[in-house]
Nucleic acid binder design. Sequence first.
DNA 1: TACAATTTTTAGATTAATCTAAATAATATT
DNA 2: AATATTATTTAGATTAATCTAAAAATTGTA
Lengths: 222, 222
Amino acid sequence: MDNISHTEENYLKAIFKIAEKEEGRPVNTNAISTEMKTTAASVTDMLNRLSKKELIHYEKYKGVTLTIKGGRTATRLVRKHRLWEVFLVEKLHFSWDEVHDMAEELEHIQSEELVERLYDYLGRPKFDPHGDPIPDAEGNFTFRKQAPLADLHLGEKGIVVGVQDHSAAFLQYLDRLQLSLGAQVTVIERFDYDESMKITLNGDKEHIVSKKVSQNLFVEKQ
Amino acid sequence: MDNISHTEENYLKAIFKIAEKEEGRPVNTNAISTEMKTTAASVTDMLNRLSKKELIHYEKYKGVTLTIKGGRTATRLVRKHRLWEVFLVEKLHFSWDEVHDMAEELEHIQSEELVERLYDYLGRPKFDPHGDPIPDAEGNFTFRKQAPLADLHLGEKGIVVGVQDHSAAFLQYLDRLQLSLGAQVTVIERFDYDESMKITLNGDKEHIVSKKVSQNLFVEKQ
DNA sequence: TACAATTTTTAGATTAATCTAAATAATATT
DNA sequence: AATATTATTTAGATTAATCTAAAAATTGTA
């Protein structure tokens, strides 16, 4: 069969990512050009190519959706990306804010056998170092009933399970606050003025976290 | 600085590989086109590009040599390739005949930090699963006083340390004969007729190995 | 040395991926 | 509904990497 270039793979991943938020609605050209940091003209060009390869359903001016084949390719990339991130953090001891770019390259390594061996080697993880679910070999995601920390009411407890914002700046800031995955947080005060909140960390240290932080941090309510 | 494409990297590696055998003599266009499985015209094209980037010294009709920069790039690729092979064999339990193609892809992963962490993680290996030396971070190779098994005289002993032929077919055949790295061989008979030899394996099993095998297997004399 | 054979380069085309600028379609606004 | 705005596509160029065919240079040989 015709093989898929790195660039085509990246477009599929971008479309998949946008489609996640858009819940099935067709993804439009501009959204893709923003995600891919390229021009709309380049996107149109690529959409024609992807369509010819039956990786997307595409109608002029009407946006795109992934075909089964395109969706499978995208979830495989996500699986590979997240498994490599686990490898980099668990085995090579990189921190969670350093691994994204390396995983962007590693996800394009072809061999399916390699990925599955890596998966076993890593102990069949369900989540990556940022708390994002790792799809299984068939492309199925494990979902969690998570909510932004901002949604917790006074007195409620939660376990930190993920982030909305994946930027290195945010991740490093969380490290400074010791707000890493698995930490237990309890809301002990809420300030309406700037929507910040006071929390305790693992029933111990107290912190004030801004609205921005509490909105970008996912917890599982206890 | 201008960055180097995967293709350019592959050309540099090919030139490096040919230059190893040619011992410093300029590498000619045809040799590269054979190694790269491409046309001489494409090679000439690429040589102009590599020359412009100061990765090779190139004079029309006179062949090429690597510049310091080009040589460093090539040895880094070799280092990465061989370290990834160690990873695939030692950690993911692939066999030595399966890892080449995967390593061809993995060697292009950029991060130098990743390679050095991998190196530590693997226990700072000096040789890859085929017995080839892994250059250090500065590009220095560890050499061994090795010889083809064919050179051993009657009664001489050697330890299998490497292969000349890296083909999967040869490697699989060696596995069948239990002639893996580290095996001790003793020449107990030599047949002039077809230049085959009878050996004992680890002082035990007897085998007859063909000229072709004994020429493609490196041993360290004891 | 001169001719033949080989090697290498040049010329001109092709494909993937990109760009800018202009044209067209869809959507929003008065 | 007509017009303005925004989104998308088309047209035409560019660059990297490749090819085939032809030309030029080098090497081998009679």
